Amino acid sequence: MLHAATNHFCDENKLGEGGFGPVYKGTLADGKEIAVKRLSRTSGQGLLEFKNEVMLIARLQHRNLVRLLGCCLEKNEKLLVYEFMPNRSLDVFLGYMAPEYAMEGLFSIKSDVFSFGVLLLEIISGKRNNGFHLLECGESLLTFAWKLWSKGKGMELIDQHLVQSCVAAEVLKCIHIGLLCVQEDPADRPSMSSVVVMLGSEIIPIPRPTEPAFSIGRVVAKPTEPTSNDRICSVNEVTISNLSPR
């Protein structure tokens, strides 16, 4: 049935390629559109990992997550069937997990609030959190924004392209709300309905945020000139790249 729905997994129906295999658009006999993740036989994801993924997604039936409609294990095929997202997945625009989910697998609507807060700070600063770095500091965009705001220097966070056209008070309020959204304890983060009210109101008092959740930026060391003895080689004399953890 899934072979027929995807026209035998033809390239024209391919939506993208993930770490474990390609995803195809399909149309069932009743006209329902689906997305079918076809695990590659060379992906390294075995039966146990496949079952764990199915169980995880089944437990995470969250209104803001794509729904798992079914799965298939037949012969050498491992297939996951999701609802089709015509505008692609939100992770294309957001790709941010709240720390409680990344570290402990705990997920709630407050996890979405965290992602929104990161996005809000990105818009204001004109920088991506996952590409943000300061020399030898390893700060994330979140901690950088927190330090500036705490010192009363929030305006230094603003993208220079926005400075001339922005209203300072409105931008500072957005930074304040963004920092509320990325607090470490999910219980301290506001609901999205509260965020909407705070953004649109001039009189509602906004509570002071606590320090944001721990988030590591990329550490970039100052470049040094290597000497002839500084080359790092493997046993077969092939040079090895210096790796920088994320």
Rank of each mutant, 00 (worst) to 15 (best):
Q45L: 14
V182M: 11
G44P: 02
P86V: 01
R231I: 03
L79A: 07
R59L: 12
K147S: 07
T239S: 14
T143L: 15
A35E: 00
P226I: 11
S241A: 15
K153M: 06
S89H: 07
M55T: 13
G131S: 12
T227D: 05
V238T: 08
G16Q: 06
R67N: 08
N13E: 07
N76E: 11
H3N: 03
C10W: 03
N242Y: 02
K151Y: 05
M155F: 09
K14R: 09
M103P: 06
A145L: 08
A213W: 08
P186W: 00
M155P: 03
H62G: 10
G154T: 04
W146A: 00
G200Y: 10
S150V: 04
G178W: 01
C233W: 08
T143H: 15
N76R: 09
R231Q: 09
V219P: 05
K51Y: 10
L65P: 13
A145W: 07
A145K: 04
S201F: 12
N129C: 14
R189D: 06
I57V: 15
V23Q: 07
M192K: 01
R38F: 08
A168F: 02
L2G: 01
A102C: 04
N13F: 00
G18A: 00
M55D: 14
G152C: 03
I124M: 06
M1V: 01
I124E: 00
S228L: 02
K153I: 02
E237R: 15
K51S: 08
L28A: 06
G138N: 05
Q61T: 14
V182N: 14
R88F: 10
S115K: 09
I203A: 13
E104P: 10
G217D: 03
L121M: 09
M97G: 10
P205R: 09
K51V: 12
E202P: 11
A35F: 06
K14W: 03
E53K: 02
S43Q: 10
C233Q: 01
C233S: 01
D91C: 06
S150T: 11
V196E: 15
I175R: 09
T143A: 15
Y24P: 04
S108T: 13
K78R: 15
V81P: 00
S150H: 03
A145F: 01
A168V: 10
Y101R: 01
G95N: 10
L79S: 01
D112A: 12
N130P: 04
L119M: 12
S165V: 13
L179F: 00
G126R: 06
L134Q: 11
G31V: 01
I206Q: 08
R246N: 09
S150E: 15
K153R: 02
G126A: 05
E170C: 10
C233R: 05
H8G: 07
R218H: 03
A221S: 14
D185S: 14
M198P: 00
G178L: 00
